[in-house]
């Protein structure tokens, strides 16, 4: 009985969660004037997509977003792994205080740092570059925190055994710590990729050229239409275009994601 109630509740939540998504997909393929009605007429069109695609250089934007997201993630993984190892396993004076200072970064909202970051990038002549968009995110406190917690759970016997076999610390990190922490890497990767895929304000402020701007800027052209009120059909089409690659990637790799979470822990 309880089981059934739980199932129904879960199903209800799932419906609630997918509703905006389904609505966006549905509206994206409907003619403009029928955008807000649910009538089941056989009118479907691709015009919205054509209109949106021609409205902004989306091919360039896709490429830029891809470069920015993978660039940030790649650097983050390196810095977070190294920092997490140090915070988890190396003893030195002031370690805990330094770690807490690092954690404060999670609490400070990114918007507060817009102006200071902009000024620093200006001094470095990195305004309007992809590197400029990426740089403030190279060291992620969240990534360091997650990895440190994971590394801490590994027994030190593992490390001792590896040393007996003659591993350098670098090999140890690469062959023991990184593979064992795979679920954490994947979890953090998901958070990082989706955050930077969706980031809008920072790239908008730092960049001026089409060559350096991400997808969200293209979406904004259609979404920020306060003079006319929302053109739902176009906004939906643009939204679908922007989220589709991420959504597809998630659906394709869903099994691997879940497996890695299930098989976590030390065998």
């Amino acid at each position: 009985m309880q089981r059934r109630v739980e199932n129904i509740a879960m199903f209800g939540l799932a419906c609630l969660w997918t509703f905006p998504l389904i609505w966006a997909f549905w509206t994206a393929f409907r003619p403009r004037e029928m955008a807000t009605s649910w009538e089941l007429t056989p009118d479907f069109t691709l015009n919205n997509f054509v209109h949106v695609w021609n409205g902004a250089p989306f091919a360039q934007y896709y490429l830029n977003t891809l470069i920015i997201v993978t660039g940030i993630l790649a650097v983050q993984l390196v810095t977070a792994t190294l920092a997490a190892y140090v915070f988890a396993k190396v003893r030195f004076w002031g370690r805990d205080i330094l770690f807490i200072l690092f954690l404060v970064q999670i609490i400070v909202p990114a918007d507060v740092l817009l102006f200071p970051n902009y000024n620093v990038l200006g001094d470095l002549s990195l305004l309007d570059t992809k590197l400029g968009i990426m740089m403030p995110y190279f060291a992620s406190a969240l990534g360091i925190f997650l990895l440190r917690q994971t590394f801490k759970t590994f027994p030190s016997e593992l490390e001792e055994a590896a040393r007996m076999e003659g591993c350098s610390w670098w090999q140890m990190l690469w062959k023991i710590y990184v593979p064992l922490a795979r679920p954490t890497y994947i979890a953090f990767g998901l958070v990082s990729v989706s955050y930077h895929w969706n980031n809008f304000m920072w790239p908008l402020i730092v960049t001026n050229s089409v060559e350096n701007r991400p997808l969200t800027v293209g979406l904004a052209i259609f979404a920020t239409s306060f003079e006319t009120g929302a053109q739902w059909a176009e906004v939906s089409a643009a939204t679908v275009m922007v989220i589709l690659p991420l959504l597809l990637a998630f659906l394709l790799f869903q099994r691997q994601f879940l497996n890695s979470f299930i098989h976590s822990g030390i065998k």
Binding site: H51, N54, G55, A56, N208, I221, F222, T224, S225, F226, E227, T228, A230, Q231, E234
Partner: peptide, 14 residues
């Protein structure tokens, strides 16, 4: 350099 917002929706950038 010339900054401009678009407030009416659609491809006014062009």
């Amino acid at each position: 350099t010339f900054y401009y917002p678009v407030a009416v929706g659609g491809p006014l950038t062009k």
